[in-house]
Computed example of a mutant assay.
Amino acid sequence: MKKAKKNSFRSISGYWIVPRVKPGKKNGFSSAWIGIDGFGNPSLIQTGTQQDYKQGKAVYYAWWEILPAPETRISYPVSPHDLMYARISKQCKNKWLIVLRNKTKGWTFRKVKKYTGPATTAEWIMEAPSINNKTTRLAHYRKMLFKRCRVNDKNPLLKPSQRGIMIQNGRIVSTPSLPGKKRDSFFVAYGGKPPLPPR
């Protein structure tokens, strides 16, 4: 997560590899996404992939969202280990372009939408999503990689202090690594143990 002054961020992008969720006795949900805003304010524009385990079955799909509206599914296929690329960029006043590309399957989704958030934070996130205003139980997503992260088309030079863990029922359930050598990549792992950083 990067934080700055109002209207500091005009674009965010990055790659990630869709994780394979581990089967479990209970339903679990996970969202991997990039976005502008959402930290410390109610605004957010985002796009990403969903990796869920529901009713004994793994479910994978792509989506985009601008709060407070609910997510909109993208009707293209997503599978574990697919290489995804996402970019959100300001085109002109209040007009933003959302791009999500599945490099493995060869499809690209584009949408221009109105967005009036403050553009004060930029995020690359793996988390348990909220459904009906309630945070869900995080799916066991094992480990995933965000790489070639960019803000305003530049290396964000990620810092260890910008990491965020996820806690559910008093237990750490998701932990990022330190940034990689170029400071534009990191792993996120299920559980409380930080993974080693990317090389």
Rank of each mutant, 00 (worst) to 15 (best):
W107F: 00
T108A: 05
T108F: 00
K111V: 04
K111C: 07
V112N: 09
K114N: 14
Y115K: 02
Y115M: 00
Y115N: 01
Y115R: 03
Y115I: 01
T116W: 02
P118C: 04
A119R: 14
A119K: 12
T120I: 12
T121V: 07
A122V: 04
E123K: 13
E123H: 09
W124S: 01
W124P: 02
I125W: 01
A128N: 03
A128G: 03
S130D: 12
S130G: 06
S130N: 12
I131Y: 12
I131E: 12
I131K: 14
N132W: 10
N132A: 12
N132T: 09
N133V: 05
N133T: 10
T135N: 11
T136P: 04
T136E: 14
R137C: 10
L138D: 01
A139M: 09
A139F: 06
H140T: 09
Y141A: 02
R142F: 10
K143T: 13
K143Y: 05
M144Y: 10
M144D: 05
M144K: 04
K147Y: 14
K147T: 15
R148S: 15
C149D: 08
C149F: 08
V151M: 02
N152V: 00
D153C: 06
N155G: 00
N155W: 00
N155L: 02
N155Q: 01
N155A: 01
P156N: 04
L157G: 07
L158Y: 00
P160L: 06
P160C: 03
S161A: 14
S161T: 12
S161G: 12
Q162F: 10
R163S: 14
R163K: 15
G164R: 14
I165A: 10
I165H: 05
M166H: 11
I167V: 15
Q168K: 04
Q168H: 02
G170A: 05
R171F: 02
R171H: 11
R171T: 14
I172N: 01
I172F: 01
I172R: 12
V173Y: 03
V173G: 05
V173F: 03
S174R: 07
L178F: 10
P179G: 07
P179Y: 07
K181W: 09
K181P: 09
K182P: 04
D184V: 08
S185H: 09
S185K: 08
S185T: 13
F187M: 14
F187H: 15
V188R: 08
A189R: 15
Y190L: 06
Y190N: 09
G191Q: 09
G191T: 08
K193S: 12
P195G: 05
P195C: 04
L196T: 11
L196P: 10
P197S: 05
P197K: 05
P198E: 01
